[in-house]
Design a protein around this nucleic acid. Structure first.
Length: 552
RNA sequence: GGUCAGUUGGUGAAGUGGCUUAACACAUAGCCCUCUCAAGGCUACAUUCACGGGUUCGAACCCCGUACUGAUCACCA
């Protein structure tokens, strides 16, 4: 009984050889320096902020170098698999312009010549490599039960020894081929373990692209490579086989993977694969209610879900800008110095990635969004907000459609100037900013008058203003001069400086007068430029609103 | 317990031995401008880089130790 026999009995269905497999994955025809990266989620149906950031960085690294970005689905754990989970992931990524060059493009379809891109469909491939390992005496079947493993663990804890399946604790590694074969013939369940050639006292070094050199003891654990339940590989084994075959150049993943590097290093070595480069990314954190810093959780934190941003109407481009500022610390300054340049012109740099966990800052996102929206043209804003309204605010959507031109004019207020108005941090804010411009929404009025609240005085001001002074054709300067003239006529201060010095000489100021007009036309004491608003409202609406106020 | 990582203001961070009396941005506060608001302008906001030692003419930056935070030690990824 030889290892050859053992391999045969463990993998009777494997007839292909390694070289058969390797032939199907020819060397990629890419120039030096092109990065091949991948996003490899479990099919859970959605991506959260942390994985979106990682996917974004993977994508960016590939695009920056004219390389390849592919989407591989890691479904070796049925627990994490959700029906139609792949579609959800593809949709979430596509919402941020992250479209794979290769890999899954829908629930069932994929593109690219290095597939299948779903791990459960690659079972035979893993088995070819596992079989070869057994044949070479570098892997073996392990029949230990959960209880056996627990027992060793208890002993190790008691003796204050390192925990795990290694050295003399790796009982099944000493089984002879005959013993193993007999057990298998007996129908005993087993996993396949790596027969680790490592020594804990040896050192290995990872040259991480973001963290530099990290030293570890060599792996000596006989880790499981094929599970007994479904004969699917573990993450470690699948990672080695897939990233070798698919020729990933840089593996980008969360820092929680750093400790398993020794395993991966050994697997690549034992399998004779060239190791990819690694970039271990800092986790995305938040401060929770107790002031404790912790990993952003998709379960507990609404802002961890990409849907959160979608529902608020944060433009995808703005989110990308924010992701880039988290991804690379030098991006923000670059963006400022390049007249708000295009994301594609910025080259991401691994050495500028954060090593410590980044705190996710919603305020900062809003700030970026405000700036972003303020720089759009009114047409762009209209086009971007419309689909969002359709989904989340039907009423306003209908009005925007019905009064397209008028709406764009509303969006134009204080937009085309050196420093445009920044008052929308998301599309959701739009309603609150403009609803009063539409007659259809101008109902249930609640006037927010400030200093002047006397109805008679207000009516007097309105009558005088609109009968005698207001002319829709006036330019802004004339408009304001007339406002001041009226102030003088009514005993209000037309000059704010003078008013502040000598309040007692006046009934109020030009500010009070404009507030009266502003509130009676919009109900709100805070609005954008009043001159623009009156002009847009037009004579007819103004008249109607005066009457509306008087009736009130 | 073993292994590994991280630690610069409220936040993201720049910084890799002298140009740092620590950049820039967000947030916050005050003032100015001003028809409201937003914007804008100005100003304030870490005498100090987790702590303790050491190396050096000189340290946030190099070395050693300690502390704290996090990750990991599954037939989960």
């Amino acid at each position: 009984m030889t290892q050859e026999d053992l391999a045969e009995i463990m993998f009777p269905d494997v007839s292909e050889t390694i070289s058969d497999i390797e032939k199907k994955y020819p060397k990629r025809n890419l120039d030096e320096g092109c990065e091949v990266t991948r996003f490899a989620p479990s099919p859970t149906g959605f991506v959260h902020m942390g994985s979106l950031l990682s996917a974004f960085e993977d994508f960016k690294a590939a695009k920056d170098t004219n390389g390849i970005f592919y989407l591989r689905i890691e479904d070796t754990d049925s627990e994490r698999t959700v029906e139609n989970g792949i579609e959800g992931i593809i949709r979430d990524l596509a919402n941020f312009d992250i479209v794979p060059d290769e890999g899954m493009i829908s629930e069932k379809e994929s593109i690219g010549a290095y597939g299948p891109y779903i791990q459960s469909q690659r079972k035979n491939i893993y088995h070819v490599y596992a079989k070869d390992l057994v044949r070479r005496g570098l892997a073996y079947p392990c029949f230990c039960s959960k209880e056996d493993l627990d027992e060793t663990r208890t002993i190790q804890e008691l003796n204050k020894e390192r925990i795990g399946y290694y050295g003399s604790y790796a009982k099944c590694r000493c089984l002879t081929c005959k013993e193993a074969i007999d057990k298998i013939k007996n129908g005993e369940k087993y996993v396949v373990r790596l027969k680790s050639p490592g020594n804990f006292n040896n050192k290995i070094i990872l040259d991480d692209r973001v963290r530099g050199k990290i030293e570890f003891p060599e792996n000596d654990q006989d880790i499981v490579i094929i599970k007994s339940t479904d004969q699917l590989p573990t993450y470690h084994f699948a990672h080695a086989v897939d990233d070798h075959l698919m020729q990933t150049t840089t593996v980008m993943r969360g820092e929680e993977w750093i400790p398993s590097y020794p395993i991966h290093h050994q697997l690549f070595e034992v399998l004779g694969f060239k190791e990819p480069r690694y970039a271990h990314l800092g986790l995305v954190m938040k401060i929770d209610e107790n002031g404790v810093r912790r990993k952003l959780s998709k379960r507990k934190d609404p802002e961890a879900s990409v849907n959160f941003y979608h529902e608020k109407g944060i433009p995808m481009e703005a989110t990308k800008l924010y992701l880039m500022t988290i991804a690379n610390s030098n991006f923000e300054e670059w963006f400022l110095n390049n007249q708000h340049g295009k994301l594609s012109d910025f080259k991401m740099d691994f050495s500028k990635m954060s090593e410590s966990g980044t705190l996710f800052d919603v305020e900062k996102l809003y700030n970026i969004t405000k700036n972003y929206i303020s720089r759009m043209t009114s047409e762009e804003l209209y086009d971007a907000a419309l689909p969002w309204m359709k989904e989340y605010d039907c009423e306003l959507y209908e009005l925007m459609l019905k009064y397209e031109d008028y709406t764009k004019k509303i969006f134009s207020i204080e937009r085309y100037q050196d420093k445009p108005r920044k008052d929308y941090s998301c599309f959701k804010d739009i309603r609150n900013g403009i609803w009063y411009m539409y007659d259809e929404l101008y109902t249930n009025l609640n006037y927010e008058f400030q200093n002047i609240t006397d109805k008679q005085e207000i009516e007097k001001i309105l009558t005088l203003y609109f009968d005698k002074y207001y002319d829709i054709n006036d330019d802004k300067e004339t408009w304001f001069n007339k406002m001041k003239m009226m102030c003088d006529e009514l005993g209000y201060a037309s000059n704010m400086k003078d008013y502040k010095k000598n309040k007692e000489n006046y009934k109020g100021s030009v500010a009070d007068i404009s507030t009266v007009i502003r509130v009676s036309m919009t109900t709100k004491s805070i609005t954008p430029d009043l001159y623009e608003i009156l002009k847009l409202l037009g004579k007819e609406r103004i008249q109607k609103r005066i009457s509306r106020f008087k009736e009130n």
